[in-house]
């Protein structure tokens, strides 16, 4: 066991894992975090807390994860390279360990151009690959990046992202292999709409035996409206939304219902792909739909491990 987090134990015991995303508020309300967390409590194994996603300032992931620990949940703390140098990152990682956080997802981070402070300076002292390696060394060698000794254990289950839809496609699996080599224990992918392309990517993942070395959780983004489908198809780079999905949303009588249906069908298809060990549901500002999706996709009840 790397950290013995609930997520790690669920995966280790061979269950099909479910994680869900929680976006902190643009304010300092702990109650907000608790309220959203209660919605997700019984329908997932761990809760990802985003780190100023899309470069919009929100409550920090570290504090929100601490609140989740207080109420007995298993947070996945997301950490991006955009806003912190190696000093702040290592310091925050120790703080997270002190609060009992056991999962850390290492990301590059959305460029600040997309956020609400586009004139800010970015950091990128490290990139996501180097962050993964740094955390692994803190955990396994008990050393900081400088070589100095860490005076406690750093039990973290290390996560990384993968995007099967970014270019160049043929390099994506090679980059995943590098993340595994750097020290990733689990992967949460970009939202899957184009299952065919995802299956093709998974075939390449299996060809390299990577599915045996890392737990892969396929990402899902429930679509709430026609506008959201169109927006994601047109403007969100790194996402691939097939025309068929947009058409289904357009023709639906009840858009939300159709969004849930698409999500549930996608989960069913993903479960059939060898090497997919779970799903990561990113219901941005729509957390209340996660229990519905989990129920309809027959992912409940969640195992107690």
């Amino acid at each position: 066991m790397k950290s013995g987090s609930n997520l790690e134990r669920v995966l280790e015991e061979g269950y099909f894992a479910v994680t869900a995303e929680l976006g902190p508020p643009k304010g300092g309300s702990a109650e907000f975090i608790r309220r959203k967390a209660e919605v997700l409590r019984n329908c997932c194994d761990a809760i990802n807390v985003t780190d100023n996603q899309t470069a919009v300032v929100r409550m920090c992931s570290l504090a929100a994860c601490g609140i989740l620990k207080e109420i007995g949940l298993d947070p996945v703390m997301q950490m991006v390279c955009r806003d912190r140098n190696r000093i702040a990152m290592q310091s925050d990682i120790l703080g997270a360990v002190a609060l009992g956080v056991q999962n850390l997802l290492c990301l590059s981070g959305d460029h600040q151009k997309f956020g609400n402070h586009p004139t800010s300076k970015n950091v990128y002292d490290l990139d996501s690959m180097q962050l993964i390696r740094m955390v692994r060394d803190m955990r396994d060698q008990r050393t900081f990046l400088s070589g100095d000794k860490v005076t406690s254990e750093v039990p973290l289950f290390i996560g990384a992202a993968a995007n099967p839809y970014a270019d160049p496609f043929e390099f994506r699996v090679a980059r995943l292999a590098m993340k595994v080599e750097a020290g990733a224990d689990f992967i949460q992918t970009q939202g899957v709409f184009d299952v065919k392309k995802f299956a093709q990517w998974m075939q390449m993942v299996r060809d390299q035996g990577l599915d045996e070395k890392v737990y892969i959780l396929a990402g899902l983004i429930p679509i709430k409206s026609i506008g959201m489908a169109r927006y994601m198809q047109k403007y969100v780079s790194g996402l691939s939304v097939p025309d068929e999905i947009v058409k289904r949303m357009e023709q639906a009588k009840d858009a939300k219902e159709e969004g849930v249906k698409i999500c549930v069908e996608t989960i069913e298809q993903l479960r059939d792909i060898p090497g997919v060990r779970g799903v990561h549901i990113m219901a941005v500002a729509w957390e209340e739909i996660v229990p519905v999706i989990a129920e309809e996709a027959k992912l409940l009840p969640r195992p107690i491990v």
């Binding site: 390279c81 955009r82 590059s108 981070g109 959305d110 460029h111 151009k113 970015n122 990128y124 990139d127 996501s128 690959m129 180097q130 992202a161 993968a162 995007n163 970014a166 270019d167 160049p168 390099f171 980059r175 590098m178 970009q190 780079s237 790194g238």
Partner: peptide, 20 residues
């Protein structure tokens, strides 16, 4: 690279262009 990455391309690389 908008993020000065040493291990790219990131997930925002699309059709040879930068998401930024």
């Amino acid at each position: 690279c908008a993020k000065s990455l040493l291990h790219g391309p990131c997930g925002g690389s699309q059709n040879g262009k930068c998401e930024v």
